[in-house]
Amino acid sequence: MNLPQLKFNKRATASEIVFNFFASIGGLTIFVVEFFKQVFIPPYEIAEVKKHMDELGVKTFPIVSVTGLIIGLVLALQSWPVLARFGATDFLPAMVSLSVVRELGPVITALIFAGRVSSGIGAELGSMRVTEQIDAMEVSAINPFKYLVVTRVVATTMILPVLTVYVVFIAIIGGYIAVIIAESMSFTYYQNAVINAIEFGDFIPGIAKTFVFGFIVGIVGSFKGFTAEGGTEGVGRASTTAVVMASLLILIFDMILVKITMWLWPTLG
């Protein structure tokens, strides 16, 4: 793997910033290609993937729980007066659940996940890089890309959809809490309204794109960490730039994927 060399100065010129941006994109592309070259070749390091998934789950569970609850609450509280003006408060469960399933759940969970996880991976692999631990694997004839990067990317790709489903569920509960603050609505009614509103088809594009988001979080964090240089300062830079890059890519890919689903299933748009 030959990655483009970035240029780091204390005061970077505009041309250097532009150069670094494209070099980063180029390097990331090479990284993605390398991932797909290696992911299907044994050994699969299943134990390592499982370990990372456990860690990721435990690490992000509290923050996504709170996020899910707040998304649901705020969405319902804000929509309530608007719907009430048209006497349409019966639509509230449908509104909350559809927005959460289709867009808010996947994107906000992914952004939170990026903030917590791509920075973590960036810092972890970055410090392994600058303390020569990655070189140590390399000289022991162990493939560090496979052992460190592939396992982490597989783990983030698989865990984010699970977290998203959980967030959607919690957000819908949050919506109900907001409803009973404003008005009495039985849980059975709310539940039925939600179930009637969401079709299975609504879930597919929403959840499908979280695989892409999970992949982005893993690969960007790994890329920044794996290519870190320049001591502890480089580790810090890997960690922060990973969050920025991952979040931006999530938003860009969200836009692209929404377009693609609308084109594939016009009825869902």
Binding site: E124, M128, T131, E132, Q133, D135, A136, V139, S140, A141
Partner: peptide, 19 residues
Amino acid sequence: NKIRKNIGFLFQGAALYDS
């Protein structure tokens, strides 16, 4: 890598896997 399996390398900073 075949050759590396027969070579040991001690890094100046030890480079222990810290996890």
